[in-house]
Amino acid sequence: AAFSVFGLGTGAQATPETAAAEIAKFAGGKAPVAGKITIELPEIAENGNTVPLAISVDAPMTEDDYVTDVLVLADGNPNPGVATFHFTPLSGKADASTRIRLATTQNIVVTAKTSKGAVYTASKLVKVTIGGCGG
């Protein structure tokens, strides 16, 4: 067996409830609908200090129908906030990639708002592992 330890530090952690509260605020009272969002994340993180994340929202991205904002939360970090992306019709696509820190195994929750007032959500579990024994 082989071990390595990483993360954001110890202490208080966000919970699915705190993440849900953030989403409610972002959605302005609307109940998010599942779908339209693709999240690309490794199922198991190679390095909790830098986990590649790509989000993509299926939208026309025209002047009258485009994704305005995308909120990314991590429900097991000390604070749930990761980033908020803001798009315009000039973005061409509602796609963005970055690299994030994950203290532990947790869900990444992505919520998107459109110019027409629709709200979508999706989530993906990322495992942060300590052991490694290769086959």
């Binding site: 198991i44 592992t129 300590i130 052991g131 024994c133």
Partner: peptide
């Protein structure tokens, strides 16, 4: 215990995408 749990999950997680590595330590 953490180590054994972690390695066991890498082998016996019901979702194969969350399995990694070899057999149990």
């Amino acid at each position: 215990k953490e180590v054994l749990e972690d390695v066991a999950d890498n082998l016996f997680n019901p979702d194969p995408y969350y399995q990694q590595g070899g057999d149990m330590v």
